[in-house]
Design a protein around this nucleic acid. Structure first.
Length: 131
DNA sequence: GCCCTGACGTGAA
DNA sequence: ATTCACGCCAGGG
């Protein structure tokens, strides 16, 4: 017998879990979440789930950005500003609606361990001792 | 069931 | 840095 109230597909659950797993102060892109959820290539599905997911679920939706580190909402929109606000509250700086994934990206850590710290290609304007 | 849209990603021009 | 085309596929009309 069919359940009178069809539960959401497992994929949705996996995606929510992946989003919930983003550490505070870090951000991840849609594709990355999809991968973590075992759904490579389904970045769009992540967006769909987030759209359906009420913020009441307690999901850190604001930690999810596009692949280029850009916020997925139209600049200036309500949601946009709120996302920026939330991120700023966690110490994630947003410049021009954009977050530096090389600094706050979740997966950044892994790259670091595999490839080592990014060599300064000489773009840096002023080298300064970081914390 | 077809068609269009979309909190996306990637590669090419 | 921008723009375009495509791939992907769940939802809603």
């Amino acid at each position: 017998m069919k359940s009178v109230r069809p539960e959401p597909p497992p994929a949705h659950h996996a995606i929510r879990a992946a989003i919930a797993a983003i550490p505070q102060g870090r951000v991840a892109n849609y594709g990355e979440i999809a991968r973590r959820a075992g759904l490579p290539g389904r970045a769009r599905l992540v967006g769909t789930v987030l759209r359906e997911a009420p913020s009441a679920l307690g999901l850190p939706w604001y930690r999810v950005l596009r692949a280029d580190g850009r916020i997925a909402f139209p600049p200036g929109s309500k949601a946009f500003r709120e996302q920026v606000r939330h991120l700023a509250g966690e110490g994630v700086l947003v410049r021009g609606g954009r977050v530096d994934l090389a600094v706050h990206g979740w997966e950044r850590d892994v790259d670091h361990l595999l490839w080592g710290p990014p060599a300064q290609t000489g773009k840096r304007k002023s080298a300064r001792a970081e914390s």
